[in-house]
Design a protein around this nucleic acid. Structure first.
Lengths: 212, 212
DNA sequence: CGACTAAGATAGTCCCGCTATCCAACAAGG
DNA sequence: CCTTGTTGGATAGCGGGACTATCTTAGTCG
């Protein structure tokens, strides 16, 4: 375990904690005072840290995700949907007049894009509706009006995602890829978006040096 | 304050807490046992909740953001940069061989896109580099290879953002718009991305009903 | 005049993500 | 053989974040 700690830079007590929490399988016990950890453990540990640090996921969610990695349950199941279910925060929007309007706008947009509104109960749809409702409450019609443009851009990202996900190898790797792509992808897209915003707004401004 | 609570659906103790934390200015005291809250307070409260619920921002960050809203400091300053500085989590990537490679990849991509690499210390750049380094550690070359495609998609989103941000009215509204667009925009884009992923992967799969 | 409520301040609660302490089992050195 | 040290496992504690409950004081209204 000391080697594992050194290889990943994660303190031993934290590794113990992760094992307790089911994020990391225990090593094969060799004798009774030593256990054996292999490259898989190193890899898993890095995955957990990446999801925690850059995906910002809570321990419980990571446990659920890696649980799908370990347990070969539902082998033929839709990996993507499973991952999304675990990852998308359940933020039930509070009711109100804006909620109904948001539902309608969302439905119309999906129809326009030819998206099957079949899964209106999908957490991601609920999340989008919640954001739209919040925007409505804040009186930001300008942003709501850009919904279709955002959807088009999101579709473009999804195209890239699917390109990466396309050649799926074995189950464990495929599952991991989906998890990584979804979680770190969010962080990456958000970061790139910020950079692009700055670049695009550069000519419009006085280009004063941004003091951090 | 009871009215304020009823109008927003937020319990009175929580409103008191927000006032203490500086997220909400206190009402103008009328006499000594009553204070007066106006539409601005309702609006601010909704903004705070939206940032907390959908932006997932911690109280401290929200305080900083609304502090920029209230205080008319640095009026001519770059609102966007200020908001980004507050919002982008400082996740300093740990060193290693992959970090150097990530820095290089990021720099090359920015050059290819014609992005001024001038602000390599920008938190968003640091974040992107960190994600790339983590991907490298995980051996996900496939995702790293898609960096340019992701950057192109992010640029598209930024184009939409700037379109929304374009006609900036008064300072308070403009600042609020930037905050809302950045924070809720992340959530909206992430949600739409998930939906688009499902739609795009639909033909490739058995279309089994996704049980939540 | 007295019951009631509002605002402010203080302290407590709950959860999450670690971190520190303790313990028994060995293994190596003297 | 006995000591010393290290390892893995278990239990308990800590610090921060976001609320929440209680207490105090000061009015208002019937």
């Amino acid at each position: 375990m000391a080697e594992l700690s050194e290889a990943t830079g994660i303190p031993v007590p934290t590794i113990k904690f992760y094992v307790r929490e089911g994020l990391l399988p225990p090593g094969r016990p060799v004798g009774r005072r030593q256990a054996d950890y292999d490259g898989g453990h190193v890899r898993r540990l890095r995955l957990v840290r990446a999801l925690a640090d850059y995906g910002g996921l809570p321990i419980a969610t990571i446990r659920e995700l890696v649980g799908h990695l370990d347990g070969g349950d539902r082998s033929g199941y839709d990996l993507l949907a499973l991952t999304q279910m675990a990852m998308t925060g359940r933020q039930e929007p509070r009711g109100g007049p804006h909620l109904a309007a948001a539902e309608r706008l969302m439905g119309e947009m999906m129809t326009r894009r030819g998206w099957s509104g079949s899964q209106t109960a999908h957490p991601a749809v609920r999340m989008a509706v919640g954001v739209l409702a919040a925007l409505g409450e804040l009186g930001r019609q300008d942003m709501i009006a850009a919904l279709d443009a955002y959807a088009a851009a999101a579709d473009r990202i999804a195209a890239v995602d699917l390109g990466v996900l396309g050649p799926a190898d074995d189950r464990e790797r495929a599952m991991e890829l989906v998890v990584v792509a979804t979680s770190l992808g969010d962080a990456l897209v958000a970061a790139l978006r910020r950079i692009a915003q700055v670049e695009r707004s550069q000519p419009l401004r006085t280009a004063g040096p941004a003091a951090c």
